[in-house]
Design a protein around this nucleic acid. Structure first.
Lengths: 186, 186
DNA sequence: GTCTATAATAGGATAGAC
DNA sequence: GTCTATCCTATTATAGAC
């Protein structure tokens, strides 16, 4: 009765990485098996629902991990510092625009409907982190919400355009512009 | 010797629609066959290189179609009218945010490397249309280019976020904000 | 909880008739 | 130029030993 080769956290991290790189439809069970170091049967032991369950588990995992990352960033004192920390976390998470967003990969998948709720939740949590910074800076609720939505839109778009053009500078420019404009006077 | 059931233009339009909906990895040959009304062998007659060649043909087709759409929009007299027409065309092309972008679907595919050049070209053409409007309005080249890049980024991101949240209002808000801000004084 | 082996199916691609 | 039929491989998923 051998113990688990990897802690579940690590398995989820590797599934996440594989979905980010190959996409949901593009990630085969063989690939997921290789990348996690688990045999197919072991994967089905963890995730009886197969690939779909792996993806939903990854989303639940992200919900926790990103929640912590957001909380860390928001623990800074000033709104400016909160924003800077959040954008640094975003830059690191996406490797300066070189790593794709799982949310986008799942939105693009044939099984997207199965992920609808956790996806909406994840996008909402992402925007909420920005909105909270806006509120902390004294922006009106509506303004904070609108700018938060726009920030998430720009980050997702920058990832697509960076990957599509091969020019990762667009991601850096986008983050820099959000940093510059997010807390500006209305 | 039966004639072609559909003009090649129509076949390409249907392949485009299928890739947009199912993604590149998610679109099977059976699906592509059904949607075009052509048997698999007929598809291979048109596109000996298989699915990859279908996608590159779709990109080449888009290059022409979008080029015409851009030219039409840019034929308007004032920069404001050019911008309004271009954004109307974008809104229609993406069905108010309900239809995905093929470019994004191909960027997300496992065969993305095979599409790298035409994809970069397509994103560039998209941005160029915006940049030309900026120049027509007297914006400095650098400003026009930066705003054009940002506009494409925002459109792509709005499509991802709209699909991910199920809230298509974000697409309308994004286009409205581009319309409002694109030609603003620096 | 993991493995090897395998079933069952779907996928991409081709052959050859018409 | 299109069709039906088919091949081969990869894929998802399961069985059963350890």
């Amino acid at each position: 009765m051998p113990a688990a080769l990897l802690p579940k956290e690590e398995v989820l991290a590797r599934l996440l990485a594989t979905f980010r790189e190959d996409g949901y439809d593009g990630a085969s069970l063989s690939e997921l098996s290789q990348r996690t170091g688990l045999g197919k049967s072991s994967l089905y032991h963890y995730f009886p629902g197969g690939k779909q369950e792996m993806a939903t588990a990854v989303l639940a995992h992200l919900d926790v991990v990103l929640g912590e990352a957001f909380a860390t960033a928001l623990a800074a004192k000033t709104p400016e510092a909160k924003l800077a920390r959040l954008l640094d976390a975003v830059d690191a998470f996406y490797s300066g625009g070189r790593s794709a967003c799982v949310l986008e990969r799942l939105v693009a998948s044939v099984d997207r409907q199965a992920f609808a709720k956790p996806l909406a939740r994840a996008f909402g949590a992402f925007a909420s982190a920005f909105a909270e910074i806006g509120r902390a800076a004294g922006l009106k609720e509506r303004v904070a919400a609108a700018r938060a939505e726009a920030a998430v839109v720009r980050i997702e778009g920058a990832l697509v355009v960076a990957a599509g053009t091969g020019d990762f500078g667009v991601f850096a420019r986008t983050l820099a512009d959000i940093k510059r404009s997010f807390l500006a006077e209305a």
